[in-house]
């Protein structure tokens, strides 16, 4: 067993070695030959903000994706409507929003569902959508950006024009118009839209609009790199475009790509919450963080309901902040010249 694992470990160290030649030697300490990857890792480890934001992100991941397990241990689920724990007006009984030993973060006003369960299942929905969207949007953006940057000429002109067109397209209006139409086309009229299809629509909308920023960024980087000596050298040695793109250019734009990924995730989390808030996101009964915040905002005037807003709004805040800080730290570590 352990024998078969061995080659894989050595392989992961590979790309770092490949880029060594392009980074000025002065960056590394003269007496130890460290790869840029190792240098970045060392910088990242030293950064306290990076460490704690990373821990927060990991904890949130564990909590969100371990939701069914937590539900099992906690003994509550996210669907049960505890109308008996509400008064006749739909307000939670007891202190704050019904906080008790049974329901640690209280219950929802109106429906009486457990806020903790709704929140972590909602986090799972939000994080899945934003993660898949971010991965897809970055991938697509990188591909388009490299093609435009490397080939230039009329290909670049068309792609740049298309990116400008997409950037000027109003995202919210498109989302509001498109999501119900998607539902009608895919699911058919008068049919319930299952939660995962609804989530796929959102991912699709985010993909359509999310790739443009990365594509521009990568295009700019590639234009700057493609006339550099090492690319010329590769070209002179007879390397084809595929080799130049994947072996020479891509490793050098890796840093901005990682950073734009870490920035895209919180942006999509916030956008997904906003769409749910507007009623075009994920529908009941699929739990969703944005919808929870929407309800909390609408009811925060009521006695003790600030707790509901604090908990749900706090979760979105923490998630977005942690990802943003981690993204910042990652950028600092990968490209120390840009920040100082």
């Amino acid at each position: 067993m352990s024998g078969t694992m061995e080659p894989m470990v050595t392989e992961t160290a590979g790309p770092g070695v490949a880029v060594m030649a392009e980074i000025p030697e002065a960056e590394a300490r003269k007496f130890v030959g460290l790869s840029p990857g190792k240098l970045a890792w060392r910088r990242l480890k030293r950064d306290k903000v990076a460490f704690w934001s990373f821990v927060t992100v990991v904890v949130m991941f564990v909590v969100a994706y371990g939701a069914p397990l937590i539900s099992l241990l906690y003994g509550k689920d996210y669907t049960t409507m505890n109308s008996d724990l509400l008064d006749a007006y739909g307000r939670p009984l007891g202190y704050l929003n019904g906080v008790s030993g049974e329901h640690w973060l209280g219950i929802q006003i109106g429906t009486g569902r457990d806020v903790f369960m709704q929140m972590i299942y909602g986090m799972r929905t939000s994080m899945t959508i934003s993660f898949v969207s971010a991965v897809g949007a970055i991938f697509f953006g990188v591909v388009v950006g490299i093609i435009a940057g490397y080939f230039g000429g009329w290909i670049d002109a068309i792609i740049s024009w298309f990116i400008d067109f997409m950037l000027s397209f109003p995202f919210l209006i498109f989302a509001m118009a498109a999501v119900p139409i998607f539902a009608n086309v895919v699911v058919g009229e008068a049919k319930e839209v299952p939660g995962w299809i609804n989530a796929s629509f959102l991912i699709m909308v985010f993909l359509i609009f999310g790739w443009t920023g990365t594509a521009r960024l990568v295009r700019g980087q590639v234009i700057g790199l493609r006339e550099r000596e090492f690319v010329e050298a590769a070209r002179a040695s007879g390397a084809g475009p595929m080799h130049i793109i994947f072996r020479q250019l891509l490793p050098n734009v890796w840093a901005p790509i990682l950073v734009s990924f870490s920035m895209a995730v919180p942006a999509f989390i916030a956008a997904e919450a906003a769409l749910s808030f507007l009623g075009i996101g994920v529908l009941e009964p699929t739990p969703d963080l944005g919808r929870l915040v929407g309800q909390a905002v609408a009811t925060m005037q009521l006695d003790g309901m600030w707790m509901y807003l604090l908990v749900t709004g706090g979760a979105v805040f923490l998630l977005v902040l942690a990802f943003n800080l981690f993204g910042d730290a990652l950028r600092d570590a990968l490209d120390p010249k840009s920040s100082r």
Binding site: A88, Y89, L93, L96, A298, D303, G304
Partner: peptide, 21 residues
């Protein structure tokens, strides 16, 4: 439900329930 601007917090008063009867 509509959104609202003013935030009125009445501390930790306990909602003992009113069945509306």
């Amino acid at each position: 439900a509509t959104l609202s601007a003013a935030l009125i917090v009445a501390g930790c008063s306990k909602n003992k329930g009113d069945d509306g009867a």
